[in-house]
Amino acid sequence: MSELSRLHEAITATIKAAMPQLETVGSYSTVQQDTTLPALFHTITALRPSTDPGDGHSCIVATFEARIAVNVHRPDAALESTALAAQLMVLLRKQYWGIDFVEEASAIQALPQATDLPTAIWVLQWQQVLHLGEAQWLWPNQPPGSLVFAFDPDSGPGKEVDYKAPEDFA
Protein backbone atom coordinates (compact mmCIF):
# COMPACT_ATOMS: atom_id res chain seq x y z
CA MET A 1 0.00 0.00 0.00
CA SER A 2 1.37 3.41 -0.91
CA GLU A 3 2.10 6.07 1.70
CA LEU A 4 -0.67 8.31 0.32
CA SER A 5 -3.19 5.44 0.43
CA ARG A 6 -2.26 4.78 4.07
CA LEU A 7 -2.63 8.49 4.82
CA HIS A 8 -6.08 8.73 3.23
CA GLU A 9 -7.27 5.62 5.06
CA ALA A 10 -5.99 7.06 8.35
CA ILE A 11 -7.72 10.40 7.71
CA THR A 12 -11.00 8.64 6.91
CA ALA A 13 -10.80 6.36 9.97
CA THR A 14 -9.89 9.22 12.34
CA ILE A 15 -12.72 11.45 11.11
CA LYS A 16 -15.26 8.59 11.25
CA ALA A 17 -14.27 7.82 14.84
CA ALA A 18 -14.25 11.47 15.98
CA MET A 19 -17.37 12.59 14.10
CA PRO A 20 -19.91 9.73 14.21
CA GLN A 21 -22.74 12.09 13.23
CA LEU A 22 -21.38 12.03 9.64
CA GLU A 23 -23.23 9.43 7.59
CA THR A 24 -20.59 9.34 4.85
CA VAL A 25 -16.81 9.90 5.09
CA GLY A 26 -14.52 9.24 2.15
CA SER A 27 -11.75 10.52 -0.06
CA TYR A 28 -11.50 11.68 -3.67
CA SER A 29 -15.24 11.94 -4.18
CA THR A 30 -17.77 14.66 -4.77
CA VAL A 31 -21.18 15.13 -3.24
CA GLN A 32 -23.74 13.40 -5.46
CA GLN A 33 -27.54 13.53 -5.33
CA ASP A 34 -27.61 10.02 -3.80
CA THR A 35 -24.90 10.65 -1.15
CA THR A 36 -26.16 10.01 2.37
CA LEU A 37 -25.84 13.29 4.28
CA PRO A 38 -24.29 14.69 6.34
CA ALA A 39 -21.13 13.77 4.46
CA LEU A 40 -17.44 14.66 4.41
CA PHE A 41 -15.09 14.05 1.51
CA HIS A 42 -11.36 14.82 1.67
CA THR A 43 -8.65 14.99 -0.97
CA ILE A 44 -5.19 16.38 -1.71
CA THR A 45 -5.51 19.45 -3.92
CA ALA A 46 -1.86 20.53 -4.26
CA LEU A 47 1.69 19.31 -3.71
CA ARG A 48 4.86 21.39 -3.58
CA PRO A 49 8.41 20.72 -2.42
CA SER A 50 9.44 21.52 1.11
CA THR A 51 12.82 21.79 2.81
CA ASP A 52 15.03 18.77 2.10
CA PRO A 53 15.58 16.99 5.43
CA GLY A 54 18.88 15.52 4.19
CA ASP A 55 17.96 11.95 5.08
CA GLY A 56 16.83 10.70 1.67
CA HIS A 57 13.12 11.38 2.17
CA SER A 58 11.29 13.64 -0.26
CA CYS A 59 9.74 16.38 1.84
CA ILE A 60 6.47 17.64 0.33
CA VAL A 61 3.88 20.16 1.51
CA ALA A 62 0.45 18.69 0.76
CA THR A 63 -2.64 20.90 0.68
CA PHE A 64 -5.75 19.02 1.74
CA GLU A 65 -9.37 19.93 1.23
CA ALA A 66 -12.42 18.55 2.99
CA ARG A 67 -15.99 19.25 1.96
CA ILE A 68 -18.77 18.90 4.52
CA ALA A 69 -22.30 18.70 3.14
CA VAL A 70 -25.60 18.82 5.05
CA ASN A 71 -29.10 18.57 3.55
CA VAL A 72 -30.53 22.12 3.55
CA HIS A 73 -34.02 20.77 4.25
CA ARG A 74 -32.98 19.63 7.72
CA PRO A 75 -33.85 21.97 10.58
CA ASP A 76 -30.89 24.21 11.40
CA ALA A 77 -28.89 22.90 8.41
CA ALA A 78 -26.73 26.02 8.25
CA LEU A 79 -25.86 25.78 11.94
CA GLU A 80 -25.25 22.02 11.65
CA SER A 81 -22.83 22.45 8.72
CA THR A 82 -21.03 25.26 10.56
CA ALA A 83 -20.76 23.15 13.72
CA LEU A 84 -19.36 20.22 11.72
CA ALA A 85 -16.78 22.51 10.12
CA ALA A 86 -15.76 23.83 13.54
CA GLN A 87 -15.54 20.29 14.91
CA LEU A 88 -13.23 19.29 12.05
CA MET A 89 -11.07 22.37 12.68
CA VAL A 90 -10.67 21.27 16.31
CA LEU A 91 -9.82 17.72 15.17
CA LEU A 92 -7.15 19.06 12.78
CA ARG A 93 -5.29 20.89 15.56
CA LYS A 94 -1.97 19.07 16.19
CA GLN A 95 -3.20 16.23 13.93
CA TYR A 96 -0.74 13.64 12.61
CA TRP A 97 -3.30 10.92 11.77
CA GLY A 98 -1.18 8.43 13.74
CA ILE A 99 1.36 8.22 10.91
CA ASP A 100 5.08 8.77 11.44
CA PHE A 101 5.83 10.43 8.08
CA VAL A 102 3.28 13.23 8.56
CA GLU A 103 3.93 16.53 10.34
CA GLU A 104 1.11 18.30 12.17
CA ALA A 105 -1.64 20.08 10.26
CA SER A 106 -1.16 23.81 9.71
CA ALA A 107 -2.75 26.74 7.84
CA ILE A 108 -6.24 25.47 8.69
CA GLN A 109 -9.12 27.50 7.29
CA ALA A 110 -12.82 26.99 6.55
CA LEU A 111 -15.32 28.82 4.36
CA PRO A 112 -18.92 28.17 3.35
CA GLN A 113 -19.47 27.36 -0.32
CA ALA A 114 -22.36 28.53 -2.47
CA THR A 115 -23.97 25.66 -4.37
CA ASP A 116 -26.97 24.82 -6.54
CA LEU A 117 -27.40 21.48 -4.77
CA PRO A 118 -29.86 21.16 -1.89
CA THR A 119 -26.97 21.08 0.58
CA ALA A 120 -25.17 23.41 2.95
CA ILE A 121 -21.46 22.95 2.17
CA TRP A 122 -18.35 24.06 4.06
CA VAL A 123 -14.89 23.70 2.54
CA LEU A 124 -11.90 23.27 4.85
CA GLN A 125 -8.28 23.45 3.77
CA TRP A 126 -5.09 22.63 5.62
CA GLN A 127 -1.49 21.78 4.89
CA GLN A 128 0.74 19.01 6.14
CA VAL A 129 4.37 18.24 5.42
CA LEU A 130 4.87 14.65 4.26
CA HIS A 131 8.20 12.80 4.39
CA LEU A 132 7.84 10.33 1.52
CA GLY A 133 10.17 7.59 0.32
CA GLU A 134 12.88 5.70 2.15
CA ALA A 135 15.51 7.18 4.43
CA GLN A 136 19.00 6.82 3.03
CA TRP A 137 22.25 6.58 4.96
CA LEU A 138 25.12 6.81 2.51
CA TRP A 139 27.89 6.12 5.01
CA PRO A 140 29.00 2.70 6.31
CA ASN A 141 27.70 1.76 9.74
CA GLN A 142 30.22 2.43 12.47
CA PRO A 143 30.66 0.38 15.64
CA PRO A 144 29.66 1.90 19.02
CA GLY A 145 32.28 4.22 20.42
CA SER A 146 33.62 5.35 17.06
CA LEU A 147 32.23 8.86 17.58
CA VAL A 148 34.22 10.93 20.05
CA PHE A 149 34.39 14.62 20.94
CA ALA A 150 37.14 17.00 21.92
CA PHE A 151 37.17 20.72 22.44
CA ASP A 152 40.00 23.15 21.83
CA PRO A 153 42.55 23.49 23.26
CA ASP A 154 42.32 19.78 24.27
CA SER A 155 42.12 18.39 20.73
CA GLY A 156 44.49 17.40 18.01
CA PRO A 157 47.40 15.01 17.60
CA GLY A 158 48.67 13.58 20.86
CA LYS A 159 45.51 14.45 22.83
CA GLU A 160 43.29 11.58 21.59
CA VAL A 161 43.24 9.99 25.07
CA ASP A 162 41.23 12.99 26.33
CA TYR A 163 38.48 12.58 23.70
CA LYS A 164 35.08 11.61 25.11
CA ALA A 165 32.23 9.46 23.76
CA PRO A 166 28.70 10.99 23.70
CA GLU A 167 27.58 8.73 26.55
CA ASP A 168 30.32 10.24 28.75
CA PHE A 169 28.44 13.56 28.70
CA ALA A 170 25.20 12.07 30.06
Rank of each mutant, 00 (worst) to 15 (best):
V72Q: 11
V72R: 11
H73R: 11
H73E: 13
H73T: 07
R74V: 02
R74H: 07
R74C: 05
P75W: 04
P75M: 10
D76V: 02
D76P: 00
A77T: 06
A77C: 13
A77K: 01
L79W: 09
L79K: 13
L79M: 12
L79Y: 07
L79E: 13
E80K: 09
E80R: 10
E80V: 10
S81P: 07
S81N: 11
S81K: 02
S81T: 12
T82L: 15
T82M: 15
T82N: 13
T82C: 12
A83C: 04
A83M: 13
A83V: 07
A83Q: 15
L84T: 00
L84H: 08
L84W: 08
L84A: 05
L84P: 06
A85I: 09
A85T: 04
A86C: 06
Q87F: 00
Q87L: 14
Q87H: 06
Q87T: 07
L88G: 05
L88N: 02
L88T: 08
L88V: 12
L88P: 05
L88Y: 01
M89V: 00
M89G: 13
M89D: 02
V90Y: 09
V90M: 14
L91S: 01
L91V: 03
L91R: 08
L91I: 06
L91C: 07
L92A: 03
L92H: 01
L92R: 01
R93L: 13
R93K: 14
R93T: 10
R93D: 14
R93Y: 11
K94S: 10
K94Q: 13
K94P: 00
K94G: 04
Q95D: 06
Q95H: 06
Q95K: 05
Q95V: 09
Y96P: 00
Y96F: 15
Y96H: 15
Y96C: 10
W97H: 01
W97F: 14
W97T: 00
W97M: 05
G98W: 07
G98S: 06
I99Y: 01
D100W: 03
D100S: 14
D100P: 03
D100Y: 06
D100K: 10
D100C: 03
D100H: 09
D100M: 05
F101L: 06
F101H: 11
F101W: 12
F101V: 04
V102L: 05
V102S: 02
V102T: 02
V102R: 00
E103R: 04
E104V: 12
E104G: 07
A105V: 04
S106F: 04
A107I: 03
A107E: 12
I108M: 14
I108S: 07
I108F: 06
Q109W: 01
Q109S: 15
Q109L: 12
Q109E: 14
